[in-house]
Amino acid sequence: MKSNKTKLNNGCMKIFKMLNLLYEDKAYYEDVVEIFKDEVDEKTVNHLQVVLNKTLNALRVFGIKVKKEGNKFRLDSSIYSIKFTPDDLKSLSILNDSAKNFPDDEVASDLKEVIHNILLRMDSDDRTAFDNYNSNYDFSFYHASLKKQIEECKKYCKQNHPLDIVYKNKGKEIRVKCSPKDVIYDSKMAYLEVCETIKNEKIIIALNNILSMMPLPCSSSPKEATSTVVYKLKNRLAKSYKPKDNEYIRDYNEDGSIIVVNKGEAFDQLLDRLMRYSYSCEIINPKTLRNRMIELINETLDNYNE
């Protein structure tokens, strides 16, 4: 009768278990020893160490560099490597430099881990080229000074804690009760993305525009911005327009215009963007946003009525 049990090679398993630990960067001495614990022979006390050394030597002879740093083995070159172009190395170097200064510790740590894992899969020539590469960018982010505020906002986002926020917008003070969603960044500023509680409208607030931020007593179920905006594009823009991630083209009209449906974009940002399209754009729905656009055009025109 045939046995269902597949025969496996013990030595092969051990070296791959060891490689697994090395690739996860978790090859602590005690965990590595655990792999070889069945090699303990009472007659030869050092047998385990001998087997471990023979395994490490097999890796080294094969060309895989393993270093012992304190209580841990580290992989210094890879059994398999991802192929990198000079442009890849440059990109990695740019990301590496940005991670050094990024004001959000969690994001920076995630990025550093990705880079570290990539380096573990790089051959030694690429590694040397990467080590010698300098991206020449200074990513000392302006918003590094907002680190404390970023951490506070992130905490509220994680707890989904409803907030009462007072912030400055175009010279006016605005108060909003909202559910915080995420902290986002551009090259100059960090922003808090929130969902306004009553209208379910997404609002993006620059952190340095926040005048006060108070947690409200009750916790709420997570709110998602559900606002939908419909607008029309005309002229040349209608022919070349590429919808954004959160958009689709609903209609292609006979006169060449198109009707775009936008979901969940923050109204203030959307208004600023649509203003750029000038008379090639008209907001159809909702009426409130259409009126806000008319108001914004009037306010801008008022700048010239002196």
């Binding site: 990301l95 969690e106 920076a108 995630d110 899969r121």
Partner: peptide, 23 residues
């Protein structure tokens, strides 16, 4: 098993950094 794995959280963080430095 030694292939690079990028978790969802890591991917989101990389995208955040990319948006911050792209300009």
């Amino acid at each position: 098993p030694f292939e690079l794995k990028i978790t969802d959280e890591q991917a989101k963080s990389v995208l955040k950094v990319y948006k911050a430095i792209a300009k």
